[in-house]
Design a protein around this nucleic acid. Structure first.
Lengths: 116, 116
DNA sequence: GAAACAGTTGAATGATTGTTCAACTATTAT
DNA sequence: ATAATAGTTGAACAATCATTCAACTGTTTC
């Protein structure tokens, strides 16, 4: 049950209409949340931050982040599906790099924010 | 067990050293992930987006987002603890607003990104 | 061809988390 | 005082998710 007595209230209805018309599309907000959800994991942020320094293979990332190749690979799959990283094979190794510099500017803006 | 045969490898050790020195501090990356974790929920993004339009009470937010006051209140507590929103009491109602315009620029940058 | 290395994948597990529900506090109005 | 409205809180439940483990594919080298 929804406990919104104020739904009958004219004032609240007006607020609701006025605000919703100026808000970004519901779908866009949902997509933004999905993007942030991917950034919202320290492993994935560290992967992206490492790839911002240099193109690296899975084994390199495992060494830099001190994680198993399996765990890194699982997260790379998520980053790949979100089109945040791309990869290329060279012999036995598969090198990963950032797919878009735009991604980095979002992380850097957040880095500025937490440093107040 | 960590399955990193390449830990003995000189090449990988060099990559590890060279990359880690230029990466942001481990703690900062962890904090950024925590910030993104908060953004990574559609309810919270919608709350922030609504508050970007106007200062609103919990009841208003419930009406705009079509959610119970309880659910909204729970998310507002998380946003409060992260210092993303502030509040003031006026009679029975408690009005919430964005604590920082910096927050909005991060969301807007993400909005630009998803629109390719 | 077999061994070794790089990487992926699926199931299982443990932890985290968003919403609901009920009970609570605080303020206003009758 | 008491009823009504606004908001908070804690427990419970379901759903999501990151890591581990084992088994697998693909490539190189001996």
């Amino acid at each position: 049950m929804i406990d919104q007595e104020c739904e009958d209230n004219i004032i609240h209805d007006e607020v609701c209409e006025q605000v919703t018309v100026d808000m970004p599309a519901e779908n866009d907000l949902y997509d933004v949340a999905e993007l942030f959800k991917i950034f919202g994991d320290s492993t994935r942020i560290r992967i992206l931050s490492a790839l911002a320094q240099a193109e690296m293979c899975v084994c390199d990332l495992g060494a830099v982040l001190n994680m198993t190749k399996s765990a890194v690979s699982h997260q790379l799959r998520i980053l790949r599906q979100a089109k945040l990283v791309k990869n290329r094979r060279k012999g036995k190794e598969i090198f990963y790099s950032l797919d878009d510099d735009h991604v980095l500017s979002i992380i850097n803006l957040a880095l500025e924010h937490i440093k107040e």
